[in-house]
């Protein structure tokens, strides 16, 4: 168990270091950092001095080490475009992205799991069939198109909901939340649905598939043979055994929700990290790109690690197999 955990942690650190290497290479070799800092009339000698003073003449490994050390303290330099520290920019926008992602995930789970259970139990029902058809359409609808359609219907035609921004926000310490004001909540509805829809169809299909699998298992037949009421069999025994893989996938999907929030944020002009990143790509703002890359990698690796460990803790069979090997 301990060796497994150590192995996974080591792997995660390696992944983070590899991503940091990519981010650092971007930093160092895409564009000339000196050019970004000095004016046209700087002499070559002054450039050399600046280069020496900033340590840009040091060996690659030393520079990379310095980058990692700085990054570990949340220091990513100054944005070329905004002329402000990148860490400040990201910290400002983190709450917006996290609120959107978490609300979407909760929405996807709250709708996806019941729909999945229903479609598994009433396989041939008309409603279940229409859920399945809808889910296929949901998979084929690109995220940004869902956003545009929602904007057209609820923003432009019906004029019920705001189509961009976060509405009013309340500051709780450094965390700015839109969940406490009416306009903030109204502004959250469409982006959250847009982001949740794809995840919801995914969760629904997964729960359905797992549930059908479990319902065929011997212990379910045994439960039925014992004469347990089908409510109990379906929900106490079958659903419980379905949820292990669902938890895993949900954890992993949290990462991709953060990635897909780039698209949603861009459609709804939601002032989060994704919007910052997409603007940074457009203007080749390397420090912001590098920092976002490292932060996202950290999120992903942490989520993967937690999910792996959770899986290990939840499923006793894994422990036994590892122990023997």
């Amino acid at each position: 168990m301990i060796s497994f955990v150590l192995q996974r942690v080591l792997q995660s650190v390696l992944v983070i270091l590899a991503v940091a290497l990519i981010a650092f290479s971007l930093f160092r070799y895409v564009g000339d950092p000196i050019n970004a800092m000095v004016g046209q009339d700087t002499t070559l000698q002054q450039r050399e001095e600046l280069k020496e003073r900033l340590g840009l003449n040091d060996p690659f490994v030393v520079q990379y080490g310095r980058f990692v050390a700085n990054a570990a303290q949340g220091e990513f330099g100054i944005s070329y475009r905004h002329r402000r520290p990148v860490s400040e920019l990201l910290a400002e926008r983190l709450p917006a992205t996290l609120e959107l992602s978490i609300v979407s995930m909760v929405l996807a789970l709250a709708l996806g799991i019941p729909m999945g259970v229903y479609t598994a139990l009433r396989r041939d029902g008309a409603l279940a069939k229409s859920f399945m058809t809808m889910s296929l359409v949901g998979v084929s609808l690109p995220t940004f198109l869902i956003g545009i359609l929602l904007i057209l219907v609820f923003g432009v035609i019906l004029r019920w909901l705001p189509t961009f921004g976060r509405g009013e926000v309340v500051d709780l310490g450094w965390w700015s939340t839109g969940l406490l004001t009416r306009s903030g909540l109204a502004a959250l509805i469409m982006p959250a649905i847009t982001l949740a829809l794809f995840q919801m169809t995914l969760i629904m299909r997964l729960v359905r598939a797992e549930m059908l699998e479990v319902l065929r298992a011997d212990f379910i037949k045994f439960c039925r043979a014992r004469g347990l009421p089908s409510r109990l069999v379906n929900f106490r025994h079958a659903l419980r055994n379905t949820l292990v893989p669902v938890i895993t996938i949900t954890g992993l999907q949290l990462g991709s929700i953060i990635a897909f929030s780039i698209i949603t944020e861009s459609v709804f002009q939601w002032p989060g990290m994704g919007l910052l990143f997409i603007q940074a790509i457009g203007t080749v703002d390397i420090p912001v790109m590098a920092a976002y890359l490292c932060l996202i990698a950290l999120f992903f690796v942490l989520i993967n690690l937690i999910v792996d460990l959770l899986y290990f803790a939840v499923d006793p069979r894994l422990r036994v197999r590892r122990g023997r090997a």
Partner: peptide
């Protein structure tokens, strides 16, 4: 473990620079 769209975005962003 990283979504394809994120990787594509990054490659595109790096090429732009």
């Amino acid at each position: 473990s990283f979504p394809a769209i994120l990787i594509a975005l990054l490659i595109d962003g790096a090429a732009r620079g």
